[in-house]
């Protein structure tokens, strides 16, 4: 089973976070339509991996969404949609869904985040149900959500555009590609942290 239970620092124990990655998803249109019709059975954050650069990048959005939910200041219908908009450096929600969310016929590699808050059921039970539901409805190949798997799908030109990383003097000066990527991750995190400021 490729469903991973996440432990995040400074998240209340009432919150359980599950993440996974599906490759070569063939029914993105169906999945997106379930979100649009607000089908309560499809309360997931569906994220297009091509706009993601690392686990830390994703986790930062999950953390931010949970923090916003605890605060009671969600700007979107639920904590899952909040994960998606937390990825954006801008406040334009529609654009954010297009860029980071699932896009019909376009999204091939999909990250799924499920956040369960203070469910009464046993953990193993929740995990089993979530996994069962996902494998039943997502047509794709589940793989563990690692940095390596993410980097295979990252579309860097797109990421650089979305986070305004082109022509940034602090990056242009760097020669070492690994260091450049590390610095870009920091700038991405900052873009998210400073959303709307």
């Amino acid at each position: 089973m490729a469903l991973e239970r996440l432990t995040l620092e400074h998240v209340p124990s009432t919150h359980r976070v599950y993440i996974t990655l599906f490759r070569d998803v063939s029914n993105s249109s169906f999945l997106q339509s379930q979100l649009i019709s607000r089908n309560p059975e499809f309360e997931y954050a569906f994220i297009d991996v091509s706009s993601i650069i690392s686990r830390t990048h994703l986790l930062a959005a999950v953390y931010n969404a949970i923090n916003t939910q605890i605060d009671g200041t969600l700007k979107t219908p639920n904590v899952h949609s909040e994960v998606v908009i937390s990825l954006s450096p801008s406040n334009n929600i529609a654009e954010t869904y297009r860029r980071w969310g699932i896009t019909p016929d376009k999204t091939k590699d999909l990250i799924v985040v499920k956040i369960v808050v203070s469910a009464d059921e046993e953990e193993a039970e929740t995990e089993r149900k979530v996994w069962e539901h996902l494998t039943q409805h997502v047509q794709g190949t589940p793989v563990p959500l690692t940095d390596g798997e993410i980097s295979k799908a990252t579309d860097w030109p797109k990421v650089r555009k979305y986070y305004k990383l082109n022509g940034v003097p602090g990056l242009e000066r760097l020669k070492d590609e690994d260091l450049k990527k590390k610095q870009m991750e920091k700038l991405v995190l900052m873009g998210m942290a400073l959303r709307g400021m």
Partner: peptide, 19 residues
Amino acid sequence: AKVLERCWREGIPVPAVYA
């Protein structure tokens, strides 16, 4: 936070903002 981001974009070593 904004000042830190500005420094970062210019490549001046300061702490990154996480949240």
